[in-house]
Simulated scan of single mutants.
Amino acid sequence: MTDQSLFDQAFLALQRRRARARATEGADFLLRHVAEDLAERLAAVSRRFSVAVELHGHTGIVGERLLSSGSIDRLIRIETDPLLIGQSDGKVASLETVPLEPETADLIVSPLSLHLTQDTPGVLIQINRALKPDGLFLGAMPGAGTLGELREALIAAESELSGGAAPRVIPFPDIRDAGALMQRAGFALPVTDVDTLTVRYSDMFGLMRDLRAMGMANPLSGRSRRPASRALFLRAAELYAERFSDPDGRIRATFRIIHMSGWRPHESQQKPARRGSATVSLADILKSTSGEY
């Protein structure tokens, strides 16, 4: 890892181990939300998947939910730490690596990790390569606008108190970037869409506790290593409440989840429509590529 790395991968792994050890009840709501959404999308595909891979799902919640759908025969979990895999069938690899032989997986799902990779195009290319022809990739990652309220409150408070602001919330990709990455990686029939989830808290500190419990503490390599002052967080909490609270006094936290779908190219797939012609929904595309061959 070079000094130019955007994310501190060792710190990320540590945060996920700590989150696994804490296992705070209810703090996994975001992964559970994504798990249900991915299960619904998979239900639109009328086929069985002999070998499915959960790529850095952190807790295994997504893999368990997909297994319960009855569409998967075998699930392999890939994580950064053996402690995260537990007794599951799995492999250990960095966020940058997909340790699978070419054309060995029928389905690969990536829940809430792709945005933390240094070389996202390279990871997507590896995923495509690991899929069998006509294999399916389903991904979900936080997108632009996620935690926008927290970002604004922290920047405003720190600028007010010290005249500058250190990066405390990571940058999130735009949906257009996600679509371009899918095309660049060579997926057939790539589709992207956004799901917005708004969660309410009594104050900013409740949100921050959940983020730590999710293993989502700031992993930026360029983050300040000096502990932030109590005054900073108190002022940020005040600004958050002033700008983003509902009439009952509770604050809002926004999570915008970008969903991605793409297939390993196969001659039986429908060809993309002429540029500028009418579009189809994700469900239509999933159904149209899921018949018997």
Rank of each mutant, 00 (worst) to 15 (best):
Q9N: 02
Q183S: 14
T254R: 06
S5T: 06
F49L: 09
M141N: 12
E242N: 09
E36H: 15
D81E: 02
Q183C: 09
G63L: 13
M141E: 10
S221T: 11
L197D: 13
R230F: 12
L12D: 01
V34D: 09
S162Q: 14
R16H: 02
T97Y: 04
V199K: 04
E158F: 14
G215L: 00
I78T: 00
A93Y: 04
L131T: 02
F172N: 00
G143K: 01
S290T: 04
I175V: 14
P173K: 05
Q4R: 14
E101K: 13
R48F: 14
D106K: 13
V53C: 08
R74N: 08
Y293C: 13
Q15N: 03
E149L: 03
R22N: 10
G26Y: 10
L181G: 03
T198W: 05
S290Q: 08
A178E: 06
A23W: 12
F205P: 04
S277C: 11
L282Q: 12
I76P: 15
N218Y: 04
A93I: 02
R176E: 13
Q9P: 00
E101V: 15
E149W: 01
L282W: 10
P102D: 09
D73F: 11
E152F: 10
I78N: 04
L147Q: 00
T80L: 00
G26M: 15
G139D: 03
L234I: 11
A44T: 03
L207T: 12
R223L: 03
S69D: 14
